[in-house]
Design a protein around this nucleic acid. Sequence first.
DNA 1: ACTCAGGTATCCT
DNA 2: AGGATACCTGAG
Length: 266
Amino acid sequence: MEKIIKDDFDLNVIANSGQCFRFNQSADGYYKIVAFNKVLNIKNLGKDTFDLDCSKEDFDNIWSDYFDLNTNYSKIRKSVKDNPFLMECATSSIGMRMLKQDIWEMTVSFIISQRKSIPAIKTSIERLCELCGDKINDTDYAFPTPIQILSTDAGKLSSCGLGYRLSYILSAAETFYSNPSYVADLKKLDDESLFEELKKMQGVGDKVASCIALFGFHRLNFFPKDVWINRALEEHFPNGFDMNLYAPYNGVIQQYIFYAYRNSHK
DNA sequence: ACTCAGGTATCCT
DNA sequence: AGGATACCTGAG
């Protein structure tokens, strides 16, 4: 189906924003996204027209929400002013959106992310999905559920290159599986309480908890600080970054900085 | 072969 | 509370 999307929506920017690991360029300008047990192939046909290989039902029920199409991102982007560095970041990040991704998948993905390069993270995640996720089609596998991971031989799980993170993942799987209302309960918490609760999981510190809150719970004011963000802040905000200026959208600003700074320094 | 990677837990002071 | 150090393993 074809869809017109007027707001900020650049597939390449989103794919390289670091918020997603199963959203990659494939052939002919298409981007393949695996999420919520589905595969979507999407391509920009020019201007604001996109081709998506999904039904209207799946678009309305899954992808529209996944892309957060009800939020006006160009408005947030245009709110960036006064600071030349931030304005440059926002300009080079035109098309950025904050995806509404699965909370469990974000938890595992960002636990895996610690001390790994992005290509290595993607490799580990794909191996894990192939090992114990549901088969979606000939080549793609869904992200495994907590019980699917808990039911898989630990030796085989190790073959996904998880290293010392494996025990963290098993512990998180146990937390999600043994408490069916875990996610629903966390959703009720305010940002600060959510942050503290997430950090109770093994292997979840400040940075990973911020990522889970921002990319999974869609709490747009979280501002994860990784090595790239820290370098950018040291260089451009020696006196500290004022988290009051862009609240409640600090997380969107973080994505602009991450995307722009990383892509111009690697 | 060697370094470093979207950090965190643990052990210090 | 804040600083130093070890940690699995793959990608360049």
